[in-house]
Structure formats: C-alpha cells, structure tokens
Design a protein around this nucleic acid. Sequence first.
DNA 1: CTACATCCTCTAGCGACTAGAGGAGCAAGC
DNA 2: GCTTGCTCCTCTAGTCGCTAGAGGATGTAG
Lengths: 141, 141
Amino acid sequence: MKSELTIGDVARESGVKVPTIRYYEQIGLLPEPPRTDGNRRFYDQKGLRRLAFIRHARELGFEVSAIRTLLALQDDPTQPCATADGIAKARLIEVEQRIASLMALKAELEVMVEECRHGRLAECRVIEVLADHGKCMHDHH
Amino acid sequence: MKSELTIGDVARESGVKVPTIRYYEQIGLLPEPPRTDGNRRFYDQKGLRRLAFIRHARELGFEVSAIRTLLALQDDPTQPCATADGIAKARLIEVEQRIASLMALKAELEVMVEECRHGRLAECRVIEVLADHGKCMHDHH
DNA sequence: CTACATCCTCTAGCGACTAGAGGAGCAAGC
DNA sequence: GCTTGCTCCTCTAGTCGCTAGAGGATGTAG
C-alpha cells in the first residue's frame, strides 16, 4: 500500500477518470492536494477514501450538491444523522418514481415493437404510436 | 380549430414550451415556419402534429438524433420500417437496463434508510455505506 | 390610448462531465 | 547521457437538451 499516490493511481483504484478528479477538485468536492516538486498532485489513503465516497454516491444518483452536504456531515460526525437520512430518503423517492415511469415507458415500447408488422412504414406501429399519443394506452405522461 | 396558430398556441396544445419550440427549429428538428407581417411564426395542424410527435418521442426518452431519423422515416413512408423498429428496440433495451440498475439502487437505498438508527452520525448507515462500498450487498456497480 | 401579454433575437447558463491543444516531467532501456 | 513514450500539467471549449434573461417590437383588450 503506497502512501503517495499519483492522480493516475487514485483514478485506477477508485474508478474515477483523471479529468473527473481534477474537475471535482475544481468545484470544491475534493480539497486541493499537496504537490510534488514537479507540480504533480499526490494523494494519501484519506484522499482515496473521499473519492470512493463520492463515486459511490454518484453511482447512487446523488447530485453533487447533495454529496457536498453528505461530505460535510461525514467530516463532522457529532451532527445528528437526520440530514443524511433525509437526503437518502428523498433520493429513494426519486428512484421509485423514476422506476414507475420507466416501467410505463417499457410497456409502451413493447407494444410498439410487438405490433410492428415489419411491413411498410405506412402501417408501422412505431411511427404511428409516436405520431398519435392517443394510441398509447398509458396516461402517465 | 384555428388554421393559423401562434407559437404560444402550439406550445399550449403540445405541452412544449415556447423557447423549446424555437430551439427545435434552430437545431433543425422543426422546419422554419412562415411568418406574419409582424415577423411572428405561425403554424398549421401539420406543424402541431410534428411537434406532438417530437414531444412523445422525447417523453419516451429518444434522443434528438433518433427523433431526427424517425421524422425522416415518417416523411418517407415507402421505406421499410426496420429502421424505426430497430431504434425502438434499442431504446427498449436501454430502458430495461436502466430499470434493473435502478432496482438495485432502490434496494441499496432502502437498506441505508432502514438501518439508520437516527442516532449520531458516528453510526449512521447512510454515511457508512457510502464511505465503504464493500458494505453494500450488491455488485451491480 | 394605454396597459399588458406575447412575440422577436441574441447571448449565456445549467449539470456533470469530456475532449483536445500544447507543453513539462519522469522512468526505463540502450 | 539520450531517447522513447507514458503520465502529468493548465487551459479552453464542447457535449446534451434545454432554460433564463436582456432588450426591444408587436398585438390585443378595455
């Protein structure tokens, strides 16, 4: 376990691309790391963990502003966790709504694809359904 | 049924906002409509249908480039519909993958929220799970 | 005739990156 | 030492699909 990690090292280990790491630093999600004599960033295990935290949160769909709050909470563990819990709950609701919406779209796409008779476009269901919303059986949108 | 519709009329009837309609025109999704003496755009039922088509396709998550192709196909209905069918099928696969991914995230978020004991952050599951990906039971990401 | 809504063009901003230019540093092989 | 080639640096600009705002013209209702 190296103690001085280059930006490439942390990129490999965290799965976050090098330019994205620099971008996170630029927007203040990551602190400015120390530099070598040759002006290169170097990181320690703490920096790597912070980046892994960010990556995981991004994968879960949290916005950067939410991650900013979560990181601040992590930095001050004397705070009650109601805030973190609230952010997670809000995200859960978003995800549930997005799933419901996508399920409806899936059903609609399936009908379109299913009914396409592979003939001429004149009777193609894909075009037809898109052209006339009334032809789709769902009222979700 | 008016035959000369202002941009505001088609916005109301299609549910697409006025600046978005102008944007669609700018990127070539909509043809440049004729203008009144006072330089205002006016539309007919055909223009409104084209906009409704675009809106529905966007709601189904099709990208603008895909919609461009679908519109071209619609304009030339002698073409086989295999292309339209392919676009819809590709989108269906995307949607299915997105649903699967969101279901996994939902499960993970539920565990996080469920296990949060509403105590101090020191033992908050939300922060903890985010900080250590190994603590989450899914290997989807 | 005066408000006020709607329209026009134009430029710039959003989020979360991603790509590319142009140059400097570093490690390994010869 | 020297060259090759990879990684790093900064900076600007582009992506997608809009959205917001400035600053001005036009149309409509009372």
